[in-house]
Amino acid sequence: MGRLIRGRAHVFKRANINTDEIIPARYLTAHDEAELALHAMEDISRDFVSRVRPGDLIIAGGDFGCGSSREHAVWALRGAGIAAIVADTFARIFFRNALNNGFLAIECAGLAEITSDGDDIELDLDAGAVRNHTTGASRLFTPLTPFALELLEAGGLLPYVAQRRGVGSPNA
């Protein structure tokens, strides 16, 4: 099964893009994705939301999503139309929240350095490869573990748990 994801890049080269930047706490009074999406990244990139088209990708530096545990950060980005994030590394709670939502988060060191805004990026989940069709460059990444892929395919932790009936257990 060829799991391919292709979209336009929005590049955040800086490390430590934190959850206060992804969705400021002043908007945590909502948890509707569409509402949160209006304010995604607004403190670092005012026009980010207006530039995103459904299916676009974020390509970022290290420790993406550090800071608070707010799952609102994942919801805001997905609500804005982002299909996946590729970062050098992810902060652990953000990564977990992403998988738990069936939202693709791939760790691939150095991609942000060789990617520009608007580049045409393709992720091959099975091969563990990412191609920049605009520049011709490519990078390899450690493929997701089978458990992570199962979570993604189920659409997140809760649907996964529901499917398995043995609620809460990855081994159930």
Binding site: I93, N97, L157
Partner: peptide, 10 residues
């Protein structure tokens, strides 16, 4: 610390 989904599952 965990997100809301982990909280729900727990």
């Amino acid at each position: 610390g965990v997100g809301s989904t982990d909280l729900a599952a727990t």
